[in-house]
């Protein structure tokens, strides 16, 4: 009945591309690959430059807290700077996340397009937030040093007096300037525009159909935000927070201006003195001899690896939450 000797194979579809197509394809592919290559080369450069430091300290580089790179017995390690970076970032995000989400929601959901018929509130706020992102970090640093710091020490004193029984609020030195808290607040303010701007963007993409569907069932505005806007924007919000975290971890100048470097590991956020990888590099650059430079580059490698991991995790979370919706 059937002819078993001949088998049907799929035909080969010709995929000849035009010269124009080939050129554009090559360009796009080259640019895409280029970013990977650059990223890889940066990592490689840091690794090579860091070798003398690792050779000198071995794994103790990750457990040492001091930073003595000269002399006959150099001992140095990234631990206190790393914990400092993490503490500053946590404080920064604790400040930035609620303010950013609220600002983004206000601009997107509540702010009137115009007030008094001619003041474009919504556009004005959007532009103001974007401008905040454009302010150089040195400005935030100086503002933090000269304005924020004198006005925060009172709060810090109050916190340590009345909540000092909680270990993080303890201050054994009685000095409150140059503390993690002030750095964290400044870093939080610097993260805010990024998080706000991205969240506003994501919130505004919420499908109108879903919004109206919820409203037509009697949902109040707050309900629409909670049950439609937030679930839709979840991935984007997490992504924006992770980007903010990247900035918080890497912030050097503003932290360097405020913090006074101290190498013991310190969890007392109100107490004067602290550390962070980026500030350590900024403040110690050019001192400490060739081993010192290598040590700073090794610290930079640690920061590089951490931010890379955070971003990879963030993109996984974002993708997973996008896949939920398909």
């Amino acid at each position: 009945m059937t002819n078993t000797t001949t088998t049907v194979t799929p035909i080969k579809i010709s995929s000849k591309r035009s010269a124009e197509d080939r050129a554009f394809r090559g360009l796009a592919r080259g640019a895409g690959l280029g970013t990977f290559v650059i990223l890889f080369l940066i990592g490689l450069f840091l690794l090579i430059e860091a070798i003398p430091a690792f050779r000198s300290q071995g794994l103790r580089f990750f457990t040492n807290t001091g930073w003595q790179t000269t002399g006959p017995h150099p001992t140095f390690g990234v631990l206190s700077a790393l914990t400092g970076s993490i503490i500053i970032s946590i404080i920064g995000l604790a400040v930035a996340i609620p303010v950013s989400l609220a600002t983004a929601l206000f601009i997107n959901e509540y702010a009137p397009a115009k007030v008094l018929g001619f003041v474009p509130v919504k556009n004005f706020l959007t532009a103001a937030v974007d401008l905040m992102a454009a302010v150089p970090s040195i400005i935030y640093g100086m503002w933090g040093f000269f304005v924020l710091q004198p006005h925060t020490t009172g709060l810090e004193q109050w916190l340590s007096t009345y909540l000092g029984f909680i270990p993080v609020f303890k201050s054994s030195t009685g000095l409150y300037t140059s503390s993690f808290l002030i750095c964290g607040i400044i870093v939080g303010i610097m993260c805010m525009p990024i998080i706000t701007s991205l969240c506003r963007e994501v919130f505004s993409l919420t499908p109108n159909g879903e919004r109206e569907g919820a409203m037509s069932l009697g949902a109040s505005r707050a309900r629409v935000i909670r049950d439609v806007v937030f679930p839709f924007a979840k991935g984007g919000v997490i992504g924006s927070i992770m980007l903010g975290l990247g900035r918080a971890l890497g912030e050097a100048i503003a932290v360097a201006i405020i913090i006074s470097l101290a190498f013991p590991i310190n969890f007392h956020i109100l107490q004067a003195g602290g550390n962070s990888i980026a500030a350590l590099i900024a403040l110690n650059w050019g001192s400490g001899g060739s081993l010192g430079t290598s040590a700073l580059l090794a610290a930079g490698l640690v920061l590089f690896a951490i931010t890379l991991i955070i971003n990879m995790v963030a993109s996984r979370i974002v993708n997973a939450s996008m896949a939920d919706r398909r």
Binding site: G209, G213, A214, S216, L217, D227, R325
Partner: peptide
């Protein structure tokens, strides 16, 4: 006073 829209708009998540 409920409403059904032109394009189906269930909550996809």
């Amino acid at each position: 006073i409920g409403m059904v829209f032109q394009r189906p708009n269930p909550f996809p998540a």
